[in-house]
């Protein structure tokens, strides 16, 4: 059969190009546009070059927020992924108990994020909150509005409660997909429970865990609503994460150029780390070098 160039085929991808342009490229380009200008009003703007980027790189409060953000995401991954896998391993495999525990697990995922913050504010209040009041009655002083440490504890508890179920659901799906023959072969080979986990379950969960880690990293790195409602970034700046600081800049101080330059760097950091995780998780344990 003769091959022939058909330029009309390009028309086929036009709809996708348009959608992607409007959903991603054009908004991104407007941000790039803002980031190189100082904007005083709709018709009053000055081109400033890379000034805003230099400002971002020298912004000490931003650096602190970035460190806080890394600490938060690291804690989220270190706690939620192993905990999620453990819970998934302990889940029932058949019968009515499966649906029951799945629904129970999924509940926190169905609650709007700002409501989550509200729930935990009330739950941990020292005067009327069930948890806060109980802890204080035990003689331990606990107040997330006063102590940065308490604020972090509350935040982590809330985050783990909210998002570990996602890791559980993914890990559980991965476990369910392992054919019985693997477990049977392991029994015949005399493998211990740890061997089964190490050589069958964990390698077979690689795909879903990669997704879980990527999702949890990106979401936790971009977190806004829950800490904003719970602590508003305080006490002091102790829970001011990147998004909270960004919103303060853009909306609070109307520093559009600064905020735009910040957004771009923020975006690049998330992109870079997601790529690193993806590469690392895809090669780990396969013996391939890419």
């Amino acid at each position: 059969m003769e091959k022939r160039e058909n330029q009309k085929a390009w028309l086929m991808i036009l709809p996708v190009v348009v959608v992607v342009a409007f959903s991603a490229i054009i908004p991104l380009m407007t941000v790039v546009n803002y980031s190189v200008q100082d904007i005083f009003g709709p018709n009053d703007r000055v081109f400033v070059g890379a000034d805003w980027f230099l400002a971002v790189l020298n912004d000490r409060r931003l650096h602190e927020a970035l460190l806080r953000q890394f600490l938060f995401s690291a804690l989220v991954l270190v706690i939620e992924v192993p905990l999620g896998v453990l819970i998934a391993l302990a889940m029932p495999r058949k019968g009515i108990a499966v649906s029951f525990s799945l629904v129970l697990l999924a509940l926190p995922l169905l609650i709007p994020w700002n409501v989550i913050g509200t729930i935990w504010i009330i739950f941990t209040r020292p005067d009327i909150g069930l948890l806060g009041h109980t802890i204080n009655s035990l003689g331990i002083s606990f107040d997330h509005t006063a102590s940065p440490f308490d604020a972090w504890i509350t935040l982590m508890l809330m985050e783990v409660w909210h998002w570990t179920p996602l890791v559980v659901l993914l890990a559980y799906a991965g476990l369910k997909a392992i054919p019985d023959a693997y477990y049977q072969a392991a029994r015949i080979d005399g493998a211990s429970a740890w061997d089964v986990f190490r050589y069958i379950q964990l390698p077979k969960m690689r795909g879903v865990l990669t997704i879980a880690i990527l999702l949890r990293f990106m979401d936790s790195f971009l977190i806004y609503a829950e800490p904003f409602v719970l602590t508003g970034g305080g006490p002091g700046n102790s829970t001011t994460f990147l998004s909270i600081y960004l919103v303060k800049l853009a909306v609070g101080q109307f520093d559009l150029g600064h905020a735009a330059a910040f957004s771009i760097i923020y975006f690049l950091i998330v992109l870079l780390f997601s790529w690193i995780f993806y590469q690392a998780l895809n090669t780990i344990g396969t013996g391939d070098r890419r």
Binding site: A181, Y182, Q184, A185, I188, Y199, I200, P203, K204, G285
Partner: peptide, 15 residues
Amino acid sequence: IAQVFQFPVVYDTMT
């Protein structure tokens, strides 16, 4: 007794 299954069961991460 040993058993060989319908589709190959190997431990992927091992040599």
